[in-house]
Computed example of a mutant assay.
Amino acid sequence: MNGQTQKSGGFVKLVKAVFWSFFGVRRRADLENDAAQLNPLHLIAAGVIGAALFILVLLVIVRAVVR
Rank of each mutant, 00 (worst) to 15 (best):
M1L: 09
M1W: 08
M1Y: 09
N2I: 09
Q4P: 08
Q4R: 13
Q6E: 13
Q6K: 12
K7L: 09
S8H: 10
S8Y: 10
G9H: 02
F11Q: 14
F11H: 13
V12L: 09
K13E: 13
K13V: 10
L14K: 00
V15R: 00
V15A: 06
A17F: 02
F19D: 14
S21V: 01
F22E: 14
R26D: 01
R26G: 01
R27L: 14
D30P: 12
L31R: 07
E32I: 11
E32Q: 13
N33G: 07
N33R: 14
N33S: 15
D34T: 00
A36V: 05
A36M: 08
A36E: 04
A36C: 01
A36G: 03
Q37I: 12
Q37G: 07
L38P: 02
N39D: 05
N39R: 03
N39W: 00
L41E: 08
L41G: 11
L41N: 13
L41K: 13
I44K: 13
A45M: 11
A46V: 04
G47T: 00
V48R: 06
G50N: 07
G50T: 05
A51M: 05
A51W: 02
F54H: 06
F54C: 07
L58G: 01
L59R: 11
L59G: 10
L59Q: 09
L59S: 10
V60M: 12
I61Q: 08
I61S: 03
I61R: 04
V62A: 09
V62G: 04
R63T: 09
V65L: 11
V66W: 03
R67P: 05
R67N: 07
R67V: 05
R67D: 10
